[in-house]
Simulated scan of single mutants.
Amino acid sequence: MSKNEPISVQEALIYVMVIVSASDNSMTDKELATIGDMIKMLPVFKDYDANSIIPAAQRCGDILQEENGLSLVLELVGDILPVKLYDTAYALAVEVAAADLEVHQEELRILQLLRDRFRFDKLTVAAIERGAIARYRTV
């Protein structure tokens, strides 16, 4: 697949997870494991070929290296995803951000950009984020 070919809905969701993970210039093992686990577990990825994960992440990385790469990825994701999957995409982004139990400023900025791109109301954002807080809380 070349950079100019359209991407699948599943690949767009992977792009969302990659931009969050890569936002602080390091994709941690926990973040990568979270991405892999969600792709294996969630129904939205049911028919997605697991062998396509790394090439998809690399394509996303290539776009990010372009001028205004982050804006290009956000636009592409917003164009590809159906509105009904916006909350799914945001939930995946929050999961990746929370995976290493430390959300960095860069990750918060990406989450804000996603909220703006998807035009979420505060209640939707709060519900998704609260769910992640509950799942990742430690004793």
Rank of each mutant, 00 (worst) to 15 (best):
G61P: 02
D62K: 06
D62T: 00
D62L: 04
D62G: 00
I63Y: 03
L64Q: 06
Q65M: 12
Q65D: 10
Q65N: 11
E66H: 05
E66G: 04
E66M: 11
E67L: 06
E67M: 06
N68E: 15
L70T: 13
L70W: 10
S71K: 15
L72N: 08
L72I: 13
V73N: 09
L74G: 02
L74N: 03
E75V: 09
V77L: 00
V77G: 07
G78L: 12
I80D: 01
I80G: 03
L81Y: 08
L81Q: 10
L81P: 09
P82V: 07
V83F: 01
V83D: 05
K84Q: 15
L85I: 06
Y86K: 12
D87I: 00
T88I: 03
A89F: 11
A89N: 11
Y90G: 04
Y90L: 02
Y90R: 09
A91I: 04
L92I: 01
V94L: 12
V94C: 14
E95L: 07
E95S: 10
V96R: 03
V96M: 00
V96E: 01
V96W: 00
A97M: 09
A97F: 03
A98N: 06
A98G: 04
A98D: 02
A99P: 03
L101Q: 05
L101M: 10
E102D: 15
V103K: 07
V103E: 06
V103Q: 10
H104T: 14
Q105W: 05
Q105R: 06
Q105L: 00
Q105A: 08
E106A: 15
